[in-house]
């Protein structure tokens, strides 16, 4: 059942990705001022939205883990955090590639950019923490605490950075990305959002499956170890 739905998902992902990239290159018009580089926006924006979705899942799963102590919530939090960090990394790479020709600079400490970078740091910290705790239960509990407090921090970071930015001179003036979008561009964007959401789900499911297999392998090894000890004793 899970395998079957996985295959359907992969097929849908393949089709959606092909459609998305086809539309990016052949359907969406070339932006009049920014030129061809604007097309990175169709990859950048869906990645960013899904990265935030991932961090939302980390928060929810961490919260559920603390309430239920069910390891499946810990696996979900971990998987979502990894895919979220991967997507955020790609957001932070694609952003400057677009910004350099358009704004003339690689980076600016604008509210959204800064928030993304701070989020990336928080969740990289989350993943690092997990690496350095031996006991699986302790790891799950402590990571969940970071998963919850890290997310509570997001609105505070957002307001702080926004206000801080508006007080300082803005190095670049760019129109909002949503302003006056050509309908063909909007359609392309939505198809891309769908495709990248499917990509997120597919990666997340695979990561979850690996984690479940790892847990099973560990349990089997423990059983085998116990049986061996039993055999040695008799």
């Amino acid at each position: 059942m899970a395998r079957r739905s996985g295959m359907i998902l992969d097929a849908a992902l393949l089709i959606a990705m092909a459609a998305a990239f086809g539309m990016i290159f052949f359907y969406a018009p070339i932006e009049s001022e920014m030129g061809i580089v604007q097309k990175i926006f169709y990859v950048h924006v869906p990645l960013a939205w899904n990265a935030f979705l991932g961090f939302g899942i980390v928060f929810f799963s961490s919260f559920r883990y603390l309430a239920t102590r069910d390891p499946k919530w810990d696996m979900r939090a971990l998987s979502a955090a990894e895919v979220g960090v991967l997507f955020t990394t790609l957001v932070l790479i694609t952003g400057p590639i677009w910004a350099k020709p358009v704004w003339g600079i690689w980076w600016t400490w604008d509210a959204r950019l800064t928030l993304t970078l701070v989020l990336w740091l928080i969740y990289v910290g989350y993943l690092m923490l997990r690496r350095y705790i031996e006991s699986p239960e302790r790891r799950a509990v402590l990571a969940a605490v970071v998963g919850v407090t890290g997310f509570i921090d997001v609105p505070l970071v957002y307001f702080a950075i926004r206000w801080w930015r508006t007080q300082h001179p803005q190095p670049v003036i760019a129109g909002g990305e949503g302003s006056g979008l050509d309908p063909r561009m909007a359609t392309t964007l939505w198809i891309c959002v769908a495709a990248f959401t499917l990509l997120f789900v597919a990666l997340y499911r695979r990561r979850l499956a690996i984690e479940a297999m790892r847990a099973r392998a560990e349990a089997l090894r423990d059983d085998a170890e116990a049986a061996r000890m039993e055999g040695a004793r008799s």
Binding site: G125, L129, I133, L142, T149, L156, V157, I161
Partner: peptide, 25 residues
């Protein structure tokens, strides 16, 4: 939290500084 890990000295700033960005500003 960091006291539970093998890399306490590294992990405290890695976890603590990004979260305290709003307070720092």
């Amino acid at each position: 939290i960091a006291a539970n890990t093998r890399m306490r000295e590294l992990l405290l700033p890695v976890l603590f500084l990004p979260v305290s960005v709003p307070a720092l500003i």
